[in-house]
C-alpha cells in the first residue's frame, strides 16, 4: 500500500461517510482506492466535475452531520479555497488532504512543501484558520486521519492534512487499526430535516451590523482553544544543542538523518519537528531559543515555515534557512554540510 492508499483506508476506518474528489497527480491513488472501497462499505464515493464541486459536496455532506473528506494536490487545493472559506464561516467540519506538488501554476508533479503559507494562513478569503497536520511517515499519515476527523468534529473546523508527493507515493510498513476516538459533542446543528424541532440553518452570511464581528470573535475564541490544546511537536536532543534544525513532513525525516550523523561527528545538534503546522509550536521553539543556539530551518520550498520560526524565536537567536524549491529534495549530506558550516566545522 502506498501512502495515498494507506491514508484512504485509514479514513475509512475512522468512519469517513463520504469521499468526493477530482483526479490530480500525485494523489490519484486516493480516489481510485476510495472508488472501490467506499461502495464495499456501503458509503459514498463521487468523482466530482471539479475541485470546486468536490469541496462543495463535502460541504453538503458535512452540513447533514456526516464525516466527509476530499483530497487533492496543490493546484486543486487552490480551487478548493472558496469552499474551505465557506466551511469555516459556516463552522462545518471537513477533512482535506493536500498531497503537495511543485508550484506556482501547474508547476510539476514532484514532491514539494510550497503550500505551507496557503495551508496555515487559511488560504481563502476572510478571517479564519484551519488546523494543519504535517505527517512525516506513512504511519503518521495513517494516524493523522482519525485525528483529523476528530479535530474537525470537535472544533467544527476544516482540518488539512499536508502531505507531499513522496509520502503519497512511497510505501513503508504501516499498522492500520481502529483506535478509540475522542468524546465528541453532538451535532445538534446538523441539517437532518426539522423533525420535532425548530429549523436549523447553516450559513456564513451575517449582514446585520455587528453580527459578523460577533461570529469572528466566536471563531477567535475557538482558535485560541485549539492553540492551547492541540499543538503537536516532536523534538530531539535540543537541551545541549548548539544548533537546532526545524523541519516538518518528509524534510524532517531527512533532517533527522543529518542530525544523527552530526552527533556522530561530535556536533551538538538537535531537531524540532512541528506536527501541527497550525497551531504552530511557538512555545516549544521559543523555549528552545531561551538558550543561545543557532536555528536552521529546512523546507522543500524557498522558505515559508521559516517565518513562523522567526516569529517564535523573536530575535533571541539567529534563524537561518536551507531549502530546495520546485520539487527538489534535500539530501542528508546537503543538510549535514549546512550544519557543519553553521557550527564552523570544516567540510569533510
Amino acid at each position: 500500500m502506498c501512502g495515498n492508499e494507506a491514508l484512504a483506508e485509514s479514513a475509512i476506518i475512522a468512519g469517513c461517510d463520504a469521499y468526493f474528489g477530482y483526479p490530480i497527480t500525485p494523489q490519484n491513488e486516493v480516489p481510485a482506492y476510495m472508488s472501490r472501497r467506499m461502495p464495499e462499505e456501503g458509503r459514498v464515493f463521487v468523482q466530482s466535475e471539479s475541485e470546486l464541486a468536490a469541496i462543495n459536496m463535502v460541504f453538503g455532506a458535512s452540513a447533514t452531520g456526516k464525516r466527509a473528506m476530499t483530497s487533492s494536490s496543490s493546484p486543486g487545493i487552490s480551487l478548493m479555497q472558496e469552499g474551505i472559506s465557506y466551511l469555516s464561516g459556516a463552522e462545518l467540519p471537513a477533512v482535506v488532504v493536500n498531497v503537495m506538488r511543485g508550484g506556482p501554476g501547474l508547476g510539476n508533479i514532484a514532491p514539494s512543501q510550497a503550500d505551507y503559507f496557503q495551508a496555515t494562513r487559511g488560504g481563502g478569503h476572510g478571517d479564519y484558520r484551519t488546523i494543519v497536520l504535517g505527517p512525516s511517515s506513512v504511519q503518521e499519515l495513517v494516524d493523522c486521519m482519525p485525528l483529523a476527523f476528530d479535530l474537525a468534529d470537535q472544533y467544527r473546523m476544516t482540518v488539512m492534512v499536508l502531505a507531499d508527493g513522496i509520502l503519497g507515493q512511497m510505501m513503508e510498513p504501516v499498522v492500520l487499526e481502529k483506535k478509540k476516538g475522542r468524546e465528541l459533542p453532538p451535532k445538534d446543528w446538523a441539517l437532518t430535516g426539522a423533525a420535532g424541532r425548530k429549523q436549523n440553518i447553516v450559513r456564513s452570511l451575517w449582514l446585520p451590523e455587528g453580527a459578523l464581528e460577533e461570529l469572528n470573535n466566536k471563531l477567535l475564541d475557538k482558535y485560541k482553544q485549539v492553540e492551547k490544546n492541540e499543538v503537536l511537536c516532536e523534538e530531539y536532543e535540543v537541551d545541549d544543542a548548539d544548533i537546532v534544525v526545524v523541519a516538518y513532513g518528509v524534510a524532517a525525516r531527512i533532517v533527522r538523518g543529518a542530525v544523527s550523523r552530526a552527533r556522530e561527528e561530535g556536533i551538538k545538534a538537535g531537531w524540532i519537528r512541528p506536527i501541527t503546522l497550525w497551531p504552530f509550536p511557538t512555545g516549544q521553539i521559543s523555549r528552545a531559543a531561551d538558550e543561545f543556539r543557532i536555528f536552521l530551518v529546512v523546507e522543500m520550498s524557498n522558505g515559508q515555515m521559516v517565518e513562523d520560526v522567526r516569529l517564535a524565536v523573536t530575535g533571541k537567536a539567529p534563524v537561518l534557512f536551507y531549502g530546495r524549491p520546485g520539487g527538489g529534495v534535500p539530501t542528508v549530506d546537503e543538510i549535514l554540510d549546512q550544519i557543519r558550516q553553521l557550527t564552523l566545522r570544516p567540510k569533510t
Partner: peptide
Amino acid sequence: EVTYMPSYGA
C-alpha cells in the same frame, strides 16, 4: 526497515 518510492509521471 524499508521504504519504496516509485517514480510517478505523466
